[in-house]
Computed example of a mutant assay.
Amino acid sequence: MNNIQDKLIYVWDAYCGWCYGFSKSLQGFNENHPELPLTVLSGGLFVGHKKLPIASFSHIPEANKRISQLTGVEFGTPFQTLLEEGAFVMDSEAAAKGFSALRFFAPERAYYLASSMQQAFYYEGKSLNDPATYRKIAIAHNLDPEAVLARFEDVASTKDAHEDFMKVQQLGVQSYPTLFLQKGDEFIGLGGGVMTAEKIEARLESIIS
């Protein structure tokens, strides 16, 4: 059905609630298409002047209600407490470094590692700026936690995170999450947001038929 070089590119940010909402749709679609390798890139949503306390983003509580209604994901009590306190700083660079450290040791499981990160933040209220969070995720995925933490602290993970940000900019992504089908040098949008696995499937069918 698919050309050998066709693959999926998923652009996300660990601190993006809509990405958390999209995770089940993407998982269902991805598992239906083992023939399409999936590359996951961190987008850098809260970096530079946007790296602010969560209370600075007044739209988040209302957005989260919509995300829950439309996708069925649950925001855990520890996260809600973090949101109400308002002081927590979402640092997408730190999160991208953490993702890079995990991905380095299990690139074929990148999506599942990303999903575990969002579960840790949005359900368990764990900081994705904190190395301890990556220790826990590493153990859960049978990765060497010490090796993951060493990689997290290494300059290589910062370089890797910045390379992801650069690739995402080159793709011209304006919103998260965004899923692409890459056909050779062409990148075709498959969707994101609140799309179900079935809708992504229909979009793929319309592209390849």
Score class of each variant (00 low, 15 high):
126 K>F: 03
8 L>V: 07
207 I>M: 08
112 Y>H: 14
89 V>R: 13
178 T>V: 08
139 I>A: 15
186 E>D: 05
161 A>E: 04
27 Q>M: 07
21 G>S: 08
176 Y>G: 01
156 A>Y: 13
117 M>R: 07
140 A>V: 04
45 L>K: 12
46 F>P: 00
178 T>N: 12
50 K>C: 01
79 F>Y: 15
167 K>N: 10
118 Q>G: 06
116 S>C: 01
185 D>N: 12
153 E>I: 02
91 D>H: 07
151 R>L: 09
93 E>S: 08
83 L>P: 05
49 H>E: 14
200 I>P: 01
12 W>Q: 06
89 V>L: 10
155 V>L: 11
86 G>L: 07
63 A>L: 14
123 Y>H: 14
204 L>R: 11
138 A>N: 11
130 D>T: 02
193 G>Q: 05
14 A>W: 00
105 F>T: 03
140 A>L: 14
99 F>P: 01
118 Q>H: 10
171 L>W: 02
2 N>W: 00
108 E>F: 03
126 K>V: 00
103 R>W: 00
9 I>P: 08
51 K>A: 08
191 G>F: 04
43 G>M: 08
47 V>N: 02
143 L>W: 11
204 L>I: 13
132 A>P: 00
204 L>H: 11
203 R>N: 14
137 I>Y: 08
162 H>A: 04
195 M>R: 07
92 S>C: 04
38 L>W: 09
164 D>R: 06
30 N>Y: 14
37 P>D: 12
87 A>E: 13
1 M>Y: 11
74 E>P: 00
110 A>D: 10
42 S>C: 14
33 H>R: 15
78 P>M: 07
146 E>Q: 15
42 S>A: 15
187 F>Q: 10
146 E>C: 02
52 L>D: 07
157 S>K: 12
169 Q>V: 03
188 I>V: 12
41 L>S: 09
203 R>F: 02
35 E>P: 01
91 D>T: 05
91 D>R: 09
72 G>L: 05
161 A>Q: 07
118 Q>V: 03
103 R>A: 05
92 S>D: 07
100 S>M: 04
10 Y>C: 02
77 T>C: 00
181 L>F: 09
39 T>Q: 14
156 A>M: 11
177 P>V: 10
111 Y>M: 12
